[in-house]
Amino acid sequence: MWSRSDAPRIMIVRLSAIGDSILTLPVLNALRDHFPHARLSWLIADYCAPIVRGHESLDELVEVNRGWLKSPRTIKQVRRRLHDMRLDVTIDVQGLAKSALPAWLSGAKRRIGFSRADREGREFSTWLNNELVHPSALHVVDRNLGLLKPLGIDNPTVRFDVPEHPSEIKAASDFIESRTLRQGFVVLNINAAWLSKRWTMERFAQVAKYLADRYGLASVLPWGNEREREDAERVAAKVPSHAMVLPKFSLTQLGSLFRRARLFVGSDTGPLHLASAVGTRCIGLYGRAVDRSGVYGPQGIVICHNHTSSDDAMRRNKDNDAMRLISVDEVCQAC
């Protein structure tokens, strides 16, 4: 077992997605707190990398594209780089073949991962990781931190410490100033990739009107792609004096904007977990499976009426009937 004075070389493997990467940040901070001299790295998909890049607890970020495992040449390049890092330990937070494989390719003698239980340790990850931890905690943040027990880290302080850079602060501040939002605003994240995670646009519009009438707060609507932008414009058009569509913001710029919001309302998506991680008060709207990925921490409120658990493949193909069980009144009351 290492002591605080040792400098082990440890790599976290969490390739995707954005929300899950955010929820893995406490693992990075716990490692830094316990091993202040360690060399800490993270293997991550390039589209998720901005949320981790520049983190004060991180020494090296290894970015791969989504299709890297389909290219023998790229696999060799990644393997060579990981070998050159001379890793002592890998921590496979994702628990899939695509995350366990690079851990194994790295040559690290200790490869920590989940055992096959409760939707963890999936595919052949348990064949490639050689120190398996049974997932005992309920929430994914605490479950991830459980992977550190073989390293002598138990019940660490939970910190996210999402990086914030001057350019992102400026982008957020310029938007707030240009829209005269210095007295406060709310973020309504109306979009989600899966239909099963979407509340209705009409209900979001009603919440925006309530927030303006009751508290004098405007609602800001972020978006990530053209479909989401069009949906945000439809909601804003329903309540033109109460809601506005955000210009195109990067993920890290959104983090800076969320820090300055009075409240965030949205479903189980990356932006919700980002807002929670930067300390914004959040109301999370959940259709199903809230236990693992509910808003983490005391600043979060979860609204959910259907607690039926299902795997990601099933949820991806579900309709949004469970989300429709959430009423406008209960969201407004939670505000």
Results as ranks from 00 to 15, higher is better:
S241K: 15
F185S: 06
S219N: 13
S267L: 10
R159K: 12
S71L: 08
N29P: 02
C332S: 09
P156L: 06
R203D: 12
P271A: 11
V302D: 15
L132Q: 03
V133L: 04
D88Y: 01
S309F: 14
R66V: 03
S41E: 02
I51G: 02
L181E: 14
V64L: 01
Q253A: 08
A171R: 11
V162M: 01
P298H: 13
G255K: 04
P8K: 10
S267N: 11
S219M: 15
L82E: 04
I51S: 06
S16F: 00
E202F: 08
S173K: 15
E131T: 12
E168M: 07
R14W: 00
V133Y: 02
C332L: 09
P72V: 09
A277L: 04
A212N: 11
D6K: 06
N130H: 08
F185T: 06
P26M: 12
E168H: 11
M244L: 15
D92V: 00
G107F: 07
T269V: 07
L87S: 07
E123Q: 13
A49T: 01
T24D: 01
E233T: 08
A108F: 01
D319L: 05
I283A: 12
V239N: 07
R324I: 09
K209I: 12
A30F: 01
T126G: 06
G19C: 01
S136G: 09
F124S: 10
A236D: 10
A45K: 12
V220G: 12
I326P: 04
N306L: 05
R32M: 03
N130L: 06
A232G: 05
A275F: 01
A277D: 04
S3D: 13
S256H: 04
P50K: 05
P26V: 03
S99W: 00
E168V: 05
D84C: 01
R316C: 07
V186P: 06
A117Y: 13
A137F: 06
D291T: 05
L147S: 00
S256F: 03
R234S: 07
D329S: 14
V239I: 14
T157G: 06
P26H: 10
I18D: 05
T180K: 14
T157W: 13
L274T: 02
I301N: 07
N306A: 07
R143P: 00
D311G: 03
R182D: 15
A236S: 13
L151M: 03
F264K: 11
P271K: 08
Q299M: 14
I326M: 12
N130W: 08
D88F: 00
L151N: 00
A137Y: 09
R198Q: 15
Y286I: 04
P166A: 13
K76E: 13
S5V: 09
V27P: 02
Y47R: 13
